Amino acid sequence: MSVARAALRGFARPSSSSTLATTTVVPLARRLATAAPTKPPTAVVLMNLGGPKDLDAVHPFLLNLFSDGDLIPIPFQKYAARVIAARRTPKIQEQYAQIGGGSPIHAWTERQGKMLEKRLDELSPASAPHKSYIAFRYAAPLTPDTIAEMQKDGITRAVALTLYPQYSCSTTGSSLNELWRNLKEMDPQEKIQWSVVDRFPTHPGLVEVFARHIEDSLKTYPPEERDSVVLLFSAHSLPMDIVNRGDPYPQEVAATVARVMDRLGHKNPFRLIWQSQVGPRPWLGPKTDAVLEGYARLGQKNLLMIPIAFVSDHVETLFEVDLEYGHLAKEKGLTGYKRVESLNADPLFIEAMADIVKSHIAENKPVSTQLPLRCPMCTNEKCGESKRFFQNQRL
């Protein structure tokens, strides 16, 4: 029996007239229904780079990307971004055409968010209900659109959750800077209180799901060859000027790899390699394609690729690793070249993310101890202002 019915039992008088019963019951039911206002949900904002949904969205995506001075600082940025985006659009459209005509990252992120909502409602009833939002850096839904949606929903408490396990100023840092810039304009009274999950490179759940995916892939090799398969942990590279500035990304990626190898018992040889270099500047290496060529020359045949810095399939996994590097591997005789399945919507990954957010909310601190620390050679004052903004949030 509902609370409303239980309350009504003491007030409704017996009467032969149904009209009298109706006039007595309805106003009281309405009062009971409005007595306790609905609590606004706790927002969990999933931040990632994003990707074009279709081929028409490739040019806007590239224009946003090359306009980001936190990621690619170039002279005359506004003008140069237009030129570079226009020049690269046809080539990038060809790449997306080969993986189905667009990036699946939005679909995967949306699914991750819905699964995360459900699990958080179970794990953290005190902060329930939870509602997920997506804030991509370079593709829809963009950060200002997400903030507007949250304001429409009456959100007053939000967790900015990066989907980059390892922190870099060019990824999570750029997304937080963009969030801060838009909040200054769209929520100057700070009606939404924010906290930030800025990294989780060694979380046990993340380590476990990577390890299990690797174990599943190793089972596809002949038993007598399984322990000699070389594990190649591949992550998106960084320009060396960003690395030398003090960006923590390389060591955090290495920390993830070290924990995963500990979990696997170091049964296989491994290397950490770096993919997706663009342009003439020096980048962090060794380059993935050069590693494949080198191991082919050295007689290694069984190479297992592990995208260790990505949590969803997108162009870097589906085109670059599977097709581009896959073609190179075939050309060089690497007959045992394979890739582990991405984390995507693996329930174990969702469980890890739910545990991260639950612990973060329970801790009731706006940021980690690492986030306020700027790179020692940082010259971007906006980065410092952004970090202070989130550090000073009152929860």
Results as ranks from 00 to 15, higher is better:
181 R>G: 04
181 R>F: 12
181 R>E: 15
182 N>E: 14
182 N>R: 06
183 L>T: 08
183 L>E: 13
184 K>E: 13
184 K>N: 11
184 K>F: 04
186 M>E: 09
186 M>Y: 04
187 D>R: 12
188 P>V: 06
189 Q>P: 01
189 Q>I: 00
189 Q>V: 08
190 E>T: 13
192 I>C: 04
192 I>N: 02
192 I>F: 13
195 S>Q: 15
195 S>M: 15
197 V>D: 09
197 V>C: 13
198 D>K: 06
200 F>S: 00
201 P>F: 07
201 P>W: 13
202 T>H: 05
202 T>M: 06
202 T>K: 01
202 T>I: 12
202 T>A: 11
203 H>W: 03
204 P>L: 11
204 P>E: 05
205 G>E: 06
206 L>Q: 02
206 L>W: 01
207 V>N: 06
207 V>K: 10
208 E>N: 09
210 F>Y: 14
210 F>A: 00
210 F>Q: 04
211 A>Q: 06
212 R>N: 09
212 R>E: 14
212 R>G: 05
212 R>D: 14
214 I>C: 11
214 I>N: 02
214 I>Q: 03
215 E>V: 09
216 D>C: 11
216 D>N: 10
217 S>Q: 14
218 L>P: 08
219 K>P: 00
219 K>S: 07
220 T>D: 13
220 T>G: 03
221 Y>K: 02
223 P>R: 00
223 P>D: 01
223 P>Q: 04
223 P>T: 06
223 P>F: 15
224 E>F: 01
225 E>C: 03
225 E>F: 07
227 D>P: 14
229 V>K: 11
230 V>T: 14
230 V>P: 01
230 V>S: 02
231 L>R: 04
231 L>V: 09
231 L>T: 10
231 L>P: 04
231 L>Q: 03
232 L>D: 13
235 A>F: 03
236 H>L: 04
237 S>W: 01
239 P>G: 06
239 P>D: 07
239 P>S: 09
241 D>K: 07
243 V>I: 12
243 V>L: 01
245 R>W: 03
246 G>W: 01
247 D>W: 00
247 D>E: 00
248 P>T: 00
248 P>R: 12
248 P>F: 05
250 P>A: 02
251 Q>G: 02
252 E>R: 01
253 V>P: 01
254 A>Q: 12
255 A>K: 10
255 A>P: 08
256 T>K: 00
256 T>G: 03
256 T>V: 08
257 V>Q: 08
258 A>H: 15
258 A>W: 14
259 R>V: 06
260 V>Q: 07
260 V>D: 06
260 V>Y: 11
263 R>T: 10
264 L>C: 03
266 H>S: 10
268 N>R: 12
268 N>S: 05
269 P>D: 08
270 F>G: 05
271 R>E: 15
272 L>T: 05
